[in-house]
Design a protein around this nucleic acid. Structure first.
Length: 115
DNA sequence: ATGCTGACGTCGC
DNA sequence: CGCGACGCCAGCA
């Protein structure tokens, strides 16, 4: 709270939350945004993912989808198909850039991390 | 310094 | 039911 280091760029916060996503689970930008307390700024979460590739630590951005469970940012991956491949590899079924049983694989930080 | 865009989400018409 | 616009934060031209 009073510690300045807690004030890390909200980007770092996003990376740490994403890194805590268990294998075979997925979450949405809005969920993370809400968990961090920025609420409506889900866009910034996605933007953070863009910077994730800058991070030294590995960030499973492929586990982060939009509210529809759609692989909106798959084109930002390298290659784009790697996102779906990574998800399927974890046991998640993806069809037409859409995660099947999205809700079943949904991982809410606000719930799992039990605020 | 100002403005636009961007891997979203929600409300309104 | 479908489409559009706004809000939010940060990076970049």
């Amino acid at each position: 709270m009073k510690d300045k280091r807690n004030q890390q760029d909200f980007f770092d916060l996003v990376f740490q939350v994403v890194r805590q996503i268990p294998e075979g689970k997925v979450t949405s930008y809005g969920a993370i945004a809400r968990y961090l307390g920025i609420g409506s700024s889900a866009r910034t979460v996605g933007w953070a993912m863009n910077a994730s590739h800058h991070q030294k630590e590995y960030v499973p951005a492929h586990r982060v989808l939009n509210r529809n469970g759609q692989l909106t940012g798959k084109f930002h991956f390298n290659p784009p198909e790697s996102m779906q491949q990574a998800l399927e590899k974890e046991g998640i079924v993806v069809n037409e850039d859409q995660v099947q049983n999205f809700q079943h694989h949904y991982w809410d930080p606000a719930v799992e991390l039990a605020l």
